[in-house]
Design a protein around this nucleic acid. Structure first.
Lengths: 240, 240
DNA sequence: CCAAAAGTGTTCGTTCTACACCCATGT
DNA sequence: ACATGGGTGTAGAACGAACACTTTTGG
């Protein structure tokens, strides 16, 4: 029972923002100790792998992500099922999978997850992890480039609506941090006066008795996200 | 290669509206010729089954749906992945699956699809098909009751937004038919004056040079849905 | 002439958009 | 004193909600 199922895999698309750019986590295909400098993109892939027969898919995604990147406890959201018959269209990809798993691979259906991480996490991953700027993810194996595009589409539909956006921000954030994050994911640049008015009406964004410190400009008010109040909020509205 | 995969299945939740009630298609578990009068709900299940190794999941869903209900060419939308470890928690369900497939069943991950059909389709299904009113679907095998609830949630999120609602209406429809359909799926009763005003502003709902005939009241203007204009419509807005 | 559904307008409050300047801090 | 980002108000347009009666047809 506790065997890898050669028909089921998971893939994870992890987004992070660094230097105002949207980035995606890729991992090295071979984890056998080349120095990081020799990595090239042909060796990079999405973190993913086969599922154990007695394992939930979401658990498999979390496990595989940690095994490959060192990232722990990441919240993941299922967004797609990849079942094309020529996912293994590139023979080299199939052979690689057979060699690394020791299994005979015919068809693999993959369940795709996305997640978002805070910028602090980006720097605490292991050396196999590479944060590649969105649209710079070329030459990936299998259908990984399609999966990334699908994840971005899915996230654009759910990021605001599901409150997922607050998972990326630090506990205490400024209104501008929130607004910048939206800009990165949606290529929008909302008017800051109108944006602030909207935010003030949302009772799940709570002002703290605290301001920024040591900044070379007027220090900004800090806020926190209240998930309970958010849950009560009349749902399925597009918020920002 | 062309074998049933004992780990992968599809399930279909097909909605139809009949007599102003929202109904779900269930099929008889054993298709071996009992007269319809002796059917009871313990024998009913969602149309679904295992997937061939060389078959796309959506093709499998369409095939299985036709095999079990006689319904053809139904457009289906993937909305969930069922991977709980105790989906076969009821031993009788597992045994039934093993007997009908002749395969040894350990774990089955099921991909769930929904679809909506016009009322005309409801009456053209074969005798295994039963249109059961929503919330009257008791004692279903596996996790089929959960799947139905999930489908309703998914459809409420996508029905309006994705224009899917027009797939249910006849080619030429009246504004009241549209409004009734919304009522059935959402338990809403929008004000007809306001509703009409909204509709008139939507250029993807096109008035025809045609009215109802042979109705015992003022005949209503007929409209059609223009998918191309809908696609251009500024997206991800909640419309009605 | 009756039953049944179709169709129509106005008012009021809310929300959205566009737009420009002063404020608090560190260097 | 200056550079940097933080923070504010108002007017006009668009939108949403509430509300009741007349019209056209078939029977």
């Amino acid at each position: 029972m506790n065997k890898l199922n050669p028909h089921l895999s998971v893939d994870c698309v992890i987004f992070g923002v660094d230097n105002q750019r949207l980035r995606v986590l890729l991992v090295d295909r071979d984890t056998k100790g080349q120095p990081a400098e020799t990595y090239d993109h042909n060796r990079l892939k999405l973190p993913g792998g086969l599922v154990f027969n007695n394992e939930l898919l979401s658990d498999a995604a979390t496990r595989v992500l940690e095994e490959l990147s060192g990232m722990k406890k990441t919240t993941l959201y299922q967004f797609d099922v990849l079942d094309s018959l020529n996912r293994m269209g590139n023979e080299a990809d199939r052979v690689w999978l057979e060699e690394t798993t020791g299994l005979s691979i015919e068809r693999v259906v993959s369940i795709a997850y996305y997640g978002i991480v805070e910028s602090s996490v980006i720097n605490s991953c292991n050396q196999n992890s590479h944060w590649v700027e969105m649209n710079q993810t070329h030459n990936l194996p299998f259908d990984h480039e399609d999966i990334i595009q699908g994840a971005l589409t899915a996230i654009r539909q759910r990021f605001k609506r599901d409150g997922l956006i607050f998972g990326y921000l630090p506990e205490k954030f400024t209104i501008n941090q929130l607004q910048n994050l939206i800009s990165v994911f949606y290529d929008e640049e909302p008017d800051s006066r109108n944006f602030r008015k909207k935010i003030k009406k949302l009772d799940f964004i709570v002002a703290l008795n605290e301001k920024q410190k040591n900044v070379a400009h007027k220090p900004a008010q800090l806020y926190r996200f209240d998930p309970d109040k958010f849950a009560q909020f009349s749902n399925n509205r597009i918020i920002f």
